[in-house]
Design a protein around this nucleic acid. Structure first.
Lengths: 150, 150
DNA sequence: ATCCTTGCAAAGCATTTGCAATTTT
DNA sequence: AAAATTGCAAATGCTTTGCAAGGAT
């Protein structure tokens, strides 16, 4: 699990001379404390009661900013929206093809796997690689049961 | 490179009792003969002269169908669109962060890597995994040169 | 004091859908 | 002949943008 604290994350913002506004802190904190990979609309709705003046546009702008900084990654989902994931520790994702659930996978083998992917890519293509995204698709335990029952 | 022929691909359609229409053949053939991972709009524009009645909506519908069948995979790109890639042989992608180019990587190590990703995911999560997408990000050779020159 | 950021509303796009006409099996 | 698919146009929904007011450094 990502064990980054809000202070560390805020430090990242300062490092890039990005202003630390209440909105950004609020959204950052939301991402740090939720493992559910929420879509934009959900983040907005859950945060709106806490900060009634917050606008959807600001949530979009802020998330895009975080993505550029590499603090957060985007997970596109089938129905056109995007989900967001705070990327404190390297991990990859399993996505359920039936219900769309996204699950983080923290495998001890992953750093090594990622390194092979990177070096193979550089060996074969002349790219200079700096990051990677890995996703596996299948059926989550709940959906396996649900589909078998019937 | 994907060496699948149009006939093999059409066979996949028949296998699922999907009707083989001229539009589907045309789009399938386009994907088989282009390694450039085109966005929907490009596919439509390049095919329109050949079949003037073809509609954009049909291209969208057809591509979605192919994705469901697993014939083709989607590659989301930053500006909101989606690119398509015929998925005949397992490979992964390198995407240039500067120009957006997508390059296929056919590494001999990939099947093994993919297998580890899958088994680690199943071991750690109770998902039943059936496919995966891997992407690495960096700078392509051209962009490295371009950015260094200046 | 300056420059950045927010919030609002409107605009912009990519993608999907309903339905009648057409085509494939 | 029956069922699926196409094409059109309109609708939908996500995301971005312009600009004035407000806030952080």
């Amino acid at each position: 699990m990502a064990e980054t604290t809000i202070d560390e994350a805020v430090g990242e913002l300062r490092k890039y001379h990005i202003r630390v506004t209440p909105q950004r802190k609020l959204i950052l904190n939301y991402l740090l404390t939720h493992e559910n990979h929420p879509p934009v609309e959900t983040i907005y709705q859950e945060l709106a009661p806490e900060m009634p003046t917050l606008s959807l546009a600001t949530v979009y702008n802020t998330l895009n900013l975080f993505v550029e900084l590499g603090l957060v990654i985007e997970i596109p989902n089938e129905n056109g929206g995007i989900r967001y994931d705070y990327f404190g520790k390297p991990h990859y994702h399993a996505i359920c093809e039936n219900c769309g659930k996204v699950t983080d996978i923290y495998s001890p083998l992953f750093p090594q796997i990622e390194a092979s992917l990177k070096s193979e890519a550089e060996r074969l293509t002349d790219y200079k690689i700096d990051s990677s995204h890995v996703t596996v698709y299948g059926l989550c335990a709940d959906c396996q049961r649900r589909l078998a029952d019937h």
